[in-house]
Design a protein around this nucleic acid. Structure first.
Length: 301
DNA sequence: ACTATTTCCTGGATGC
DNA sequence: TGCATCCAGGAAATAG
């Protein structure tokens, strides 16, 4: 089963907020409390945003206290596990090193990029092509980071925070103030992670469809009523996708090995030329800032 | 301070 | 069949 998973690298899904939420929840239920006993990092430098030695030093001998989503990032909260009981107290320098290592709030930050996956494997499972990191856990299992396109990023931090507001937590007032006065197309503004965290191409298109707003509209041109509709639509579509276990294109599999099927509910994304599910007119596809954008001419103004 | 464009990557799809 | 070319995407870097 795991061999099949490891062999399959023709995946074509891009994890956005609902997918990352699904993956983080799945991982939390499976690795919370486990301890990272050793770390292997591959030779390809791109996926490592922090120095390899720093990542390895932070992860090794740490206990995973939680796994959660922040924007499109997966955050592993780590507790340092005491390595040597009392011998390290001998010198001041050693004490200082120990104090430093004792940082309670270390975190491993994983961004999956386009093609990144975190696989929980039994030992001995064939190493998939494009495996960039392997964490061996005290339970014997291995947590592997596999990413063919290497757009994913691994780093360590102490108190990681997303730049933009969380779409599921943001309040209407802040949502409105974030977009008001921006000349950029509303589609681009939705994708801008420093404004909102976690919205990608699929959910930008789907929320704009649901709100009845065309993607090329300048953000500043949206009325208060339209911004309110977009605010509600975005929350709805993200919550529905999380409920459905994240979108899947091709055969995306989450951390529990269960497929997500939200793509069956997509109204515009990837449906160019197909009839609008509301008015039957063909869905249009245009390019905005290099990103394909799908919308219905009749349903969106 | 913003906004727009380019770049990084691989593999799947397409065309000759 | 093989080879070249294009395309997808998030975010960082670069340019305006």
């Amino acid at each position: 089963m795991d061999d099949q998973l490891a062999d399959d690298d023709k995946l074509l899904f891009v994890p956005e907020l609902p997918e990352v939420e699904t993956i983080a929840r799945g991982l939390a239920s499976r690795v919370k409390g486990d301890i990272i006993s050793s770390v292997w990092l591959g030779s390809k430098p791109e996926p490592l945003k922090s120095p390899a030695a720093q990542i390895a030093a932070t992860l090794e001998s740490s206990r995973i206290s939680d796994v959660r989503r922040v924007g499109k990032h997966i955050v592993f909260d780590l507790d340092r596990v005491a390595r040597t009981p009392s011998s390290a107290k001998s010198s001041r320098a050693a004490k200082r090193r120990l104090d430093h290592a004792d940082e309670k709030n270390s975190q491993w930050i994983v961004h999956l990029g386009m093609s990144g996956r975190l696989l929980l494997c039994e030992p001995g499972t064939k190493i998939a092509k494009h495996t960039h990191a392997i964490l061996t856990l005290r339970s014997g299992r291995e947590l592997r980071f596999v990413d063919p396109r290497r757009f994913g990023r691994l780093s360590v931090a102490h108190s990681f925070e997303a730049l933009g507001a969380e779409p599921l937590e943001v309040e209407l007032e802040e949502f409105v103030s974030v977009f008001r006065g921006r000349k950029t197309p509303i589609k681009s503004a939705l994708l801008n992670q420093s404004l909102l965290s976690g919205v990608g191409n699929i959910y930008a298109d789907e929320s704009l469809f649901r709100a009845g707003v065309r993607p090329r509209r300048r953000a500043s041109s949206l009325t208060k009523a339209e911004l309110r509709r977009l605010f509600l639509s975005l929350k709805e579509v993200l919550n529905e996708a999380i409920k459905a276990g994240g979108s899947s294109i091709s055969n995306y599999v989450d951390a529990n090995g269960e497929a997500g099927f939200f793509q069956l509910q997509h109204h515009v994304y990837g449906r160019e030329g197909e009839p609008c599910l509301v008015c039957k007119r063909p869905i249009k596809r245009i390019v905005i800032a290099g990103r394909s954008s799908h919308y219905c001419m009749a349903c969106q103004k």
